[in-house]
Design a protein around this nucleic acid. Structure first.
Lengths: 326, 326
DNA sequence: CGGGTGTGAGAGAGCGCTCTCTCCGACAGG
DNA sequence: CCTGTCGGAGAGAGCGCTCTCTCACACCCG
């Protein structure tokens, strides 16, 4: 199990190491016949370039990090698989690895040192909150970074998000079109941009809606719906700001003898798997997560290859997925 | 933004590069005063060892791969987050990276070349089927690899699994203890070890059970339950071989006017998030996924550090989580 | 007092690759 | 025929680190 080096390929092909390297890296300034000889030598020897040696001189790790928040929050996120899939789609054909970094409370700094010791070329940050010092330090150090979702406080950082406001408006319009009169919303946490925007966008469309607060968890959906029924027993349309909360809220309606969608129409947000495990299946606002993730990857790669890449933010438009609940 | 090298640390500390390296790597043969000088130099310069240079000489990437099947199957897997979390817990404190490899149909070979070009020290393979040539080629090449779940056809490979048979027996026993008489099971795909073992273990406990086949997807749970009700209208206890299928099956019972658990008791398998979004919440067989993943990581690291590590398989015992459905 | 023994530090040889710099030969123009 | 130019190939200098080998020095024993 001897490792084959470029030196050996060159020897077999009867050329210099430099020429072999040129062939491997696709330089055009190589004579056809020599190129063939090298290619043949590569396949007979089964040569694979040593990634560490290359990385040492090119100063590129060809790896990017996906930084996720602590375990508990990640496990609740139905989007992880789609994010990974979207990023992989862009990054893999370029030979770039995706390194998953699940960070505990104190471990977030890890991303910084991995970046600085040349282990990672850049990172995608998911679910950062405003208290997180990492994004600030990354941009201060001029390291490539992309945020998933708009940061709560404005900072000069590239991010990709869905138009939350427009999505919530879509939901509001849908409920009005269904002829609902007593409309309410169960919100997300109001210390996150997504929570804020979804409420604001919805109220812009349905200004007189009842408002009950949740925090995106299924649990909070249950509690909020109980509260809502007590508050406004004849509610006939609810925009629930996440599918997961809607998944918890619908059984509460059933328990109180309300039929969905006949008595109460429900519209969710996310189009996550939780939407399909609702009874009836959930009408919801779809975020193109995989496409957004792919775009994050593209933005990050651009920053990596080009120091002077401008800070940009990309916003995707959501769409309404009509199923049975509203 | 100048990169600090070991050379510079040595110069600042007034020692040789070799001594600085000794301090960084915790060698004991360094005089206290010099060690202090080097440590001070490290912190004043903000030195971080270049990972590529180190990797070039140590021939270790300090990275392992988690190889997942194609996108579609992965997205359906509720365990991904737990697996990642379990592996991370073991691997991160050792400074080892977790690289996620989502493989398309043809891309599985990627793992092999990443391993051979020194990019990865070993891989954990999830959801391999018997047609997959990769495990065989990895063990043939003597490369460190651990399988999640027993391979369908026996091979000399280290794997970690839950005792599927015992778990299914647990479910059968539960239904009998509840006094159920007309018991059935909705199986998983019979071309997977998990599908086979769960059926076999269940039948060992309830030999006269009705058997209807599914394939672990929610969809198939719906279809199988429809089939089962037609086949045996007065069924009063069902072991569904995955929570996801149970999640699809329960609404079918409701639609046919059967109450859960009063008319029909349901026991699932996995204790995934799908169990909590059932109405009523699902009694199920719990696999300690995160612990299993941690064990896989440990086994893999052992193979990496020790060429002659023996091939072992570790089996975890499942447990019954009693909720409301049975 | 000389010769082993041991301990701690430095010198320097790579690890496998990329890339600049140099050089060689062919060919065109004066 | 000489000089200038240019495409293509080789030589070799690193990239930053680890680790062996060597060496200096102090110490103990015969």
């Amino acid at each position: 199990m001897k490792r084959v080096t470029l030196e050996e390929v060159a020897r077999v092909a009867g050329v210099s190491r430099a020429t072999a390297s040129r062939v491997v890296n696709g330089a055009s300034t190589v004579d056809e016949s020599l190129r063939h000889a090298v290619e043949k030598a590569i396949s007979t020897t089964g040569y694979l370039p040593n990634i560490a040696a290359r990385s040492l001189v090119t100063r590129r790790a060809d790896a990017i990090g996906l930084v996720l928040p602590d375990e508990r929050r990640m496990l609740g996120d139905p989007h992880l698989a789609s994010v990974v899939s979207g990023v992989t789609r862009v990054v893999r054909p370029l030979g770039v690895q995706l390194v998953l970094m699940m960070t505990g409370p104190g471990t977030r700094e890890q991303a910084l040192s991995d970046l600085r010791c040349g282990r990672l070329d850049g990172v995608i940050l998911v679910h950062t909150d405003s208290a997180d010092p990492v994004p600030g330090r990354l941009i201060a150090a001029g390291l490539p970074v992309v945020l998933a979702g708009r940061p709560l406080k404005p900072m000069p950082i590239t991010y990709v998000d869905v138009n939350q406001t427009a999505g919530a408006a879509l939901a509001g319009r849908r409920l009005k079109e269904l002829g609902r009169r007593r409309i309410a919303t169960i919100t997300g946490p109001q210390d996150t941009p997504a929570g804020q925007d979804r409420l604001q966008g919805f109220l812009a469309e349905v200004p007189d809606a009842w408002v009950v607060h949740g925090d995106f968890t299924r649990q909070s959906g249950v509690a909020a719906m109980e509260q809502l029924i007590a508050l406004c027993p004849d509610v006939d349309g609810v925009f629930v700001a996440s599918d997961l909360m809607a998944n918890g809220a619908i059984p509460v309606l059933h328990r109180h003898g309300r039929k969905v969608p006949d008595d109460v129409a429900i519209v969710g947000f996310d189009d996550s798997t939780a939407a399909l495990t609702c009874e009836p299946e959930l009408t919801t606002v779809r975020q193109p997560i995989a496409d957004m993730a792919a775009e994050m990857a593209r933005q990050l790669l651009r920053q990596i290859t080009d120091d002077r890449a401008p800070v940009t933010s990309v916003t995707f438009e959501p769409s309404l997925v009509v199923r049975d609940s509203g």
